[in-house]
Design a protein around this nucleic acid. Structure first.
Length: 108
DNA sequence: GGAACGGCTAAGG
DNA sequence: GCCTTAGCCGTTC
């Protein structure tokens, strides 16, 4: 394939609007490989588009923020997400309503 | 070509 | 609620 798995991950992450978040599994599932959730995390970690890809909007399936670019739990990012409209409690998104429903280019 | 890594996930204690 | 164990995937060195 022309692009690597991670490149597609970046595209999906960049599609996440402000005030919304997504999970590694959801992104992997969108790419058609729900089992590659770890590869997604790896891709975001080694992302060459750090400022371009909102990695802080990608969290774990449990709703936990996890970490950012190697930081166990950057509360700075958490507060930023809250400022964008995402309700984060104790470093976790308790409301599933904030999870952005990613979708493939099938109908739009 | 092969081993190691990682922001994981799921299950169990 | 937090930590550990095991499994699994793609990229990087």
């Amino acid at each position: 394939m022309a692009q690597t798995f991670r490149e597609r991950v970046y595209e999906c992450v960049k599609l996440i609007p402000t005030g919304r978040v997504s999970t590694y599994k959801d992104i992997a599932n969108l790419l058609g490989e729900p089992n590659s959730c770890r590869a997604v995390g790896q891709a975001l970690k080694t992302n060459p588009f750090s400022p371009v890809v909102p990695c802080h909007r990608v969290i774990k399936s449990d709703g936990k923020v996890g970490g950012f670019q190697g930081t166990p739990n950057s509360k700075e990012k958490v507060m930023m997400l809250e400022k964008e409209g995402v309700r984060i409690i104790d470093g976790k998104v308790k409301d599933r309503s904030f999870f952005y429903v990613l979708q493939a280019s099938f109908d739009r």
